[in-house]
Write a protein that binds this DNA or RNA. Structure first.
Lengths: 248, 248
DNA sequence: GCAAATTTGTCCGTATGTATC
DNA sequence: AGATACATACGGACAAATTTG
């Protein structure tokens, strides 16, 4: 025997042994938890992890790749490895690929996605119209104005403002998960839609008008009007998806 | 020069070049999309991918690790690599770690999680009481009966039935994403809660009673009672989290 | 600005464990 | 049981990026 001579701690003669890289994954996770590290904190170098965990550099590197895919660690070339931001980037990548893969009725993924976003905002309508303060409403108005001015920008400014608008809209709930999920789904939609002939920038004027209506409803604290405005905002999106689906 | 002699396709003299393994990641993704593969379909072996994409085993293997973390590919030792199931397993791992990492008020993650699950079910109450057919309601009742009988089982049968109950509850929406997110959040909760001294198996009797009430409300197609039953079901969970938070 | 040191990125060769036929 | 194909793991070497003296 030359390589995997001993697994030191646990021989595990019969039980199905997990790959060594998985032990490294767990080891790095434990290290972060044990030392109560925060996103951005430095981690030991690859060589240090090798001798600390008793694995070769290949195994350590593969483990690090897994952890980076989950945004649990972050690597900077020639600099070092650090604790990641724990974002939902893995969800975005996973859902994006799922959206691109589906063969015939792939649009179901997109429809589901938009429906959840609408559910977040409509389901929290009562709390939102009460929780948004004047300063936040002004910022919402600012994003609407930006969308108006971004007609020539060909998308960049427009979609960014749209994303910021909906992110800020659910922010005062105090539920970070909802905000991050909403943003993640928005990202997936923007990436996948162009590949499916779902035209997003067709009716910019009406999209802006609907956003304006949402702002007005929030400003007057009218929950019913707020919910109605959301319905009218998402209906065209739903319609465009159904339209593209019918084209196949 | 010996190793990175040529990047064949794109020299990219000035632009910030991405790591080779990322090109392999994109290459495998493109391969799956190009050939319209489905979950379970076989992928080329590592050596085949090496010459096809012009990369070494190390780079290919690291790329595969990234793709397995996202459940885009699945590897069976000594057998081969296949298209993965595209589940939300990465979300579960990511959120679980986030839940375990938080320093002082980590319970916010758990509270957010439960709130989203409740939002899914309460926000869709109207549609759910209409969409669930008799056969599905009978199966819901079956899970409640299982929870009753699983008192001695010490959790295993109990939690499984609980998971199945809520998964089936949102299934008739026809929105797979909601079902998978709901299940993923449930998994995270079950994994993280024990580490935070959130006692889940304390009031089994009342938990079962609340599930029974949900079933009864669905059977009589009473949306208001259904929503009320959900509130009473989730209130204790929320309370237990707040209770554990107060203990610190 | 330069050179050295540190750290990650990539490659190769080889040996081992695992599953299929 | 043997043969084959495949993934797993090791160790060493060099390339590229970054920081620092």
């Amino acid at each position: 025997m030359k390589h995997g001579a001993e697994r030191s701690a646990t021989p595990e003669p019969k039980a199905a042994r997990q790959p060594l890289r998985q032990e490294v994954v767990d080891g790095v996770k434990s290290y972060i938890l044990r030392n109560k590290l925060r996103p951005g904190d430095p981690l030991p170098s690859e060589t240090a992890l090798c001798e600390a965990l008793g694995a070769s550099r290949s195994s350590v590197r593969e483990a690090i790749r897994i952890l980076t895919a989950l945004d649990i660690v972050e690597v900077r070339h020639g600099h070092g490895t650090y604790v990641g931001r724990l974002s939902l980037s893995a969800l975005v990548e996973s859902l994006t690929f799922r959206g691109l893969l589906s063969p015939d009725d792939d649009f179901q993924v997109m429809a589901d996605l938009v429906e959840v976003r609408e559910l977040f905002e409509r389901g929290m309508a009562d709390r939102l119209v009460g929780a948004l303060d004047e300063e936040q409403i002004d910022r919402l108005q600012g994003f609407v104005d930006t969308m108006c001015a971004a007609g020539a920008d060909k998308g960049h400014g427009f979609v960014d403002a749209d994303r910021s608008f909906h992110t800020l809209l659910v922010a005062p709930l105090g539920n970070d998960l909802i905000g991050q999920l909403s943003a993640a789904f928005w990202d997936v939609y923007v990436i996948v839609a162009p590949h499916l002939d779902v035209f997003t920038h067709e009716h910019e004027a009406s999209t802006i008008a609907n956003h304006q209506r949402i702002v007005d409803a929030v400003r007057t604290r009218d929950a019913a009007e707020f919910a109605a405005a959301l319905t009218d905002h998402y209906a065209p999106v739903r319609h465009r998806i159904a339209e593209a689906r019918a084209r196949r």
